[in-house]
């Protein structure tokens, strides 16, 4: 897919309120996990980080409530995660292609004899699976 299509398709995406709600919920869960892990060993009274919690809650609620803000944040997230995802995916493709497929290719070619030129190109050794229930 050309890069312009990638960005266009993300920014043209329709984001529903429920999506924004879920997104905020996920962030909230992450925030809770973060604080739990940070303050798990020492007991800190709630008042100590009250303002941080309130700021986070403020942002989360505003994601849901304010149309533009929520859309913007979500689309930014989609762009960044999409790019990272694409990088990982193509990385994987390159790894599979060059590290797994290529050595196999050389091994297979070592063991297969080159087909000799003949006076016909009909193939009689057909693989036809008469079992209609089989996908191959």
């Amino acid at each position: 897919m050309p890069p312009t299509n990638f960005f266009q398709s993300i920014w043209a995406k329709k984001i529903r309120i429920i999506d924004r709600f879920y997104f905020s919920l996920i962030l909230l869960v992450l925030a809770v996990l973060y604080y739990r892990s940070r303050y798990i060993s020492v007991h800190v009274p709630f008042t100590e980080y009250q303002w941080e919690v309130y700021t986070i809650l403020f942002f989360l609620v505003s994601f849901i409530v304010i149309d533009f803000w929520g859309d913007f944040i979500l689309k930014c997230w989609l762009t960044v995660s999409g790019l990272v995802g694409k990088l990982i995916f193509y990385g994987l493709m390159i790894i599979v292609y060059f590290l797994i497929l290529s050595p196999v290719f050389f091994i297979v070619h070592l063991f297969t004899k080159k087909k000799e030129e003949t006076s016909s190109n009909w193939s009689k050794k057909m693989y036809i699976n008469k079992d209609y229930q089989n996908m191959g």
């Binding site: 390159i94 292609y97 060059f98 497929l101 290529s102 196999v104 290719f105 297979v108």
Partner: peptide
Amino acid sequence: TVTYHIPFSF
């Protein structure tokens, strides 16, 4: 086919 044409078939 892809394997047969390595490394040009990427």
